[in-house]
Design a binder for these strands. Structure first.
Lengths: 114, 114
DNA sequence: CCGTATCCAGAGAGATACTG
DNA sequence: CAGTATCTCTCTGGATACGG
C-alpha cells in the first residue's frame, strides 16, 4: 500500500512548493510566450506546434487554476478565447528571464542538453 | 508506432531546453540545498526525508550528467561522497532566488498550492 | 555510509477523432 | 475557433531489498 504523506508541506523549502505548480512540461514555455502580450488559443498553439491542443488546454487550465493565467472568453461566433498573465503571473517573469540568461550561458560554455 | 521528433531543438524557446535538464521533481530542491555549501550524501538525504535514497541518487546522477553538480568521492572507510555545484551550477542560483522571491509573493497574496 | 538492483503503479504526455 | 473525448504508452517516482 502506498504511504500517505502531506503534499502541501513537503519540505521547509519554498522551491518544493513551486514545483507543485510548475511541474507541467510546458508550463514555463506558456508563461514565456504570454509575457509580452495576450494571445488567443490558436496563436499560442501555433507558437508551440509540438504541443497538442489537448495538452495545451490542460496546461492552460492548470495555470488558470493556480492563478497565473487569466482566461477571457468572448461570446462571439466563431469563438474567441484570450489568455493573459495575471498579476502574480507577471511577477513570475523575472524567473523566466533568469532562466533565459542561464540557458544561454549554459550553451555558450559548451554544455548541451540531452 | 510512436513518431520520431528532435528533442534537442524543440522550440526556438530557450526555456524548453532548460526543461530538458530540470524536469526532475527534486532537481531544483537539490540545487537549493547545495547553493551555500558542499554536502555529503547523508546530509542532503536528511534535509530531504521525503526523497528515497534511490531517487536522490538518480537525481544527483542526472544533475552530474548535465554538469550542474560535482561529485567528489573520497576513498576512505566508511565511504564519503561530497556533492557541490559546478561553475554553471552556481550560475543557476539566481534562478533559485527569483523562484524563492516569487514563492513567498505567491503565498502572501493569498494563493495556495494544490 | 553510500549507494545499486528490481519492481510496480500512476501521472502525464502524445495521437487521433470528434463537437458547439 | 477552441476546445472534448479516448486511448496508449512512456517515464519516473516510490517501495523494498541488498551490496562494497
Amino acid at each position: 500500500m502506498k504511504q500517505e504523506y502531506d503534499q502541501s508541506n513537503i519540505l521547509d523549502c519554498p522551491i518544493a512548493d513551486v514545483q507543485q505548480i510548475i511541474h507541467g512540461k510546458w508550463a514555463m514555455v506558456v508563461i514565456f510566450y504570454l509575457r509580452d502580450s495576450t494571445l488567443r488559443f490558436g496563436e499560442l498553439s501555433r507558437k508551440m506546434p509540438q504541443v497538442t491542443q489537448a495538452n495545451l488546454t490542460k496546461e492552460l487550465r492548470a495555470l488558470e487554476k493556480f492563478g497565473l493565467v487569466h482566461r477571457e472568453v468572448y461570446k462571439v461566433v466563431p469563438p474567441k478565447v484570450e489568455y493573459s498573465l495575471t498579476d502574480i503571473g507577471q511577477r513570475f517573469i523575472p524567473v523566466i528571464e533568469a532562466l533565459e540568461t542561464w540557458a544561454i550561458d549554459y550553451k555558450n560554455t559548451g554544455h548541451v542538453t540531452q
